[in-house]
Simulated assay, not measured.
Amino acid sequence: MLEMEDVSVTYGGVLTALHGVSLTVPEGSCVALLGANGAGKTTVLRAISRNLSRHGARLTDGRVRFDGIDLARTSMSEVVARGLVQVPEGRRILGRLSVEENLRVGGMRRGRKAAAAARERVYGIFPRLAERRHQQGLLLSGGEQQMLAIGRAMMAGPKLLMLDEPSLGLAPIIVGQVADVIRQINAEGTSVLLIEQNAAMALSVASSAYVLELGRVSLSGASGELTETDTIRHLYLGHSGGEVSAGSVAFATTLQPWSGNGPS
């Protein structure tokens, strides 16, 4: 479905942020992209969504294809229209609008019936949003705002949903709920590219993963296999409990797959 082939990206024509990055998201799959701050994860998303120039960056080599279409000459709006939708880091909901209004904005490109059906699907996935449909977004908790951000993206009817750090700043029990939602969305047929620092959560949700270090893919494979590698154990999951040293990604303190189960 999504293919990045030997993609290199520079900022300001000087700083190279990505060095020949290749990754694939097969149709119907959930794939994780792991890496520390500054590894290049967000730049990967910008390269896919055609959002590089706004940040002073450009693709200098390689190709990005979605459903067999080269995205090189595709605008950001066309990318979304083709079914490639991103939930940005930091949620970025419309705080002064209600939950219902945020969802309606997300479904503006769709017909009335399709948008109404999508909205009911979102409320089915997020019952808490249904309870708060008339409440302003800025009055929601952090977890509820993340749910709304994902729900608004789902209103566009994505074939591939790209999630940028959905667990960032959330309490562990809420992270568990977000993980369960990602599993549900994927199980219902939407492909997912999950960008995360929380490796334990990401590997528990995704079927496969890539590890990005300093703009290069250093590891890739099935999630279960990566969990057993020494690099992932020591740097990303924590070998003997507690947080690992600065510069590593891990937040988890156990090697056991994290179920993410918690009260709704």
Rank of each mutant, 00 (worst) to 15 (best):
M155G: 09
G262V: 10
H55Y: 05
G260F: 06
M76T: 15
T60V: 15
A202R: 03
L59E: 07
S53R: 10
T190L: 09
V249Y: 01
P158Y: 02
G242F: 09
R104V: 10
R216K: 15
P158K: 12
A116W: 01
A187V: 06
G28C: 03
A187F: 02
D6L: 08
G142S: 04
G95A: 11
V14T: 14
V99C: 04
G238L: 06
Q86I: 13
S220L: 05
M162N: 05
T10I: 06
I195Y: 02
T229L: 07
D164G: 02
L139S: 13
G260S: 08
R112L: 15
E213N: 12
L237F: 07
M154F: 02
M76S: 15
S207C: 08
L193Y: 05
R132T: 05
G12I: 02
L160C: 12
I174H: 01
G83T: 06
V181S: 05
E78T: 07
T253F: 02
V244P: 00
L15M: 13
S218C: 12
A202M: 02
A39Y: 05
L148S: 09
T42L: 03
T227Q: 15
L97R: 12
E78Y: 01
P127S: 02
G83L: 03
L193H: 03
P158S: 00
Y236G: 05
V249R: 00
R133D: 07
V64I: 14
S29E: 15
G241A: 13
S259V: 09
G247K: 00
N51D: 14
Y123W: 10
L59I: 07
M108R: 01
L138A: 14
S77W: 05
E225I: 12
S264K: 06
P127M: 09
G176N: 06
L34V: 04
I125P: 00
K41T: 09
H239L: 12
L163G: 06
M155P: 04
Q177K: 13
V99E: 11
A114L: 10
E101M: 02
Q136M: 14
G40W: 00
K113S: 15
M76V: 15
L140G: 07
E213K: 03
A116S: 09
L168E: 12
A130D: 10
M1Q: 10
G262Q: 11
E144M: 12
S53Q: 13
